[in-house]
Write a protein that binds this DNA or RNA. Structure first.
Lengths: 128, 128
DNA sequence: TATTGACCTTCCAGTCGCTGTAACCTTTAG
DNA sequence: CTAAAGGTTACAGCGACTGGAAGGTCAATA
């Protein structure tokens, strides 16, 4: 199939698919005589897998390793475990940071329409 | 004062200060005869203000508007209000997304050391 | 047959907020 | 005199795309 069909089936932008090939996440497909990329049905599965990983915010480098590990049936899945655990830890870290951020923003409250020299938000931003 | 003194006092990297000038967040300072940037004491306050905003994850473009608004005492602080409210909304949105992400990652659980063809994580990633 | 329009190709630039590096000049201390 | 520390510019890279330009290819229609 051509790239747009793969894009539709995998729900990944054709441009992004080319990008994945460029950075080595996706292996280069065969080319037709006109230079068009020609993909196999299995590529749909690979891309859907990649998309699910991206939805979990897993970095492309890690996804690359996950794809490689799948190609080697003798590999230990400790690698997989580690990547997911680290991703989880990172998400939890980000959550804690955002919670603090939210608190700080909320203490600024709103100052509803006065002039800037009396703006309570700006006041607090200058000397918190 | 020279840039490194400003950097120390404002707790912002000298490189970052030059970058802020480059993108128009900070106005260009006077130059000494040797070409060195020469800053006024007030610049410390401006940069501290900028740093506080950045700690709240406020984008540079928005900070730019906050700085401009402060220079104009007749401006309404509705602008300020809006920027902070949007920032808060965005942080809350990000938090909700991360919470979903965390859930998804946790359902993957760990598969502790089997071989990849039986890896429960990879299984779930292929068909969630 | 000519041409339109959809699709494909490559390459380059931009996003955001810095940070690293290189190459060079000036000042200060020993 | 020399070396270290600090200043200057310009350019590249990060991550994960996305947009655009400029051009080749293909199928259908006037």
């Amino acid at each position: 199939m051509k790239i747009s069909e793969l894009a539709t089936k995998s729900q990944i932008n054709a441009k992004t698919i080319r990008y994945y090939e460029q950075v080595g996440l996706l292996s280069a497909p065969q080319r037709a005589s006109n230079g068009y990329r020609h993909y196999q049905p299995g590529d749909v599965d690979t891309l859907i897998f990649i998309r699910r990983c991206r939805e979990l915010n897993i970095p492309l480098d890690d996804i690359k390793r996950l794809v490689e590990v799948q190609a080697d049936p003798n590999a230990s899945c400790a690698v997989v475990d580690k990547i997911i655990a680290e991703q989880l830890a990172q998400v939890q870290r980000a959550q804690r940071e955002l919670a603090l951020l939210e608190q700080s923003l909320q203490t600024l409250a709103s100052c509803s329409g006065e002039q800037v020299d009396q703006c309570t938000i700006l006041h607090k931003l200058k000397a918190p």
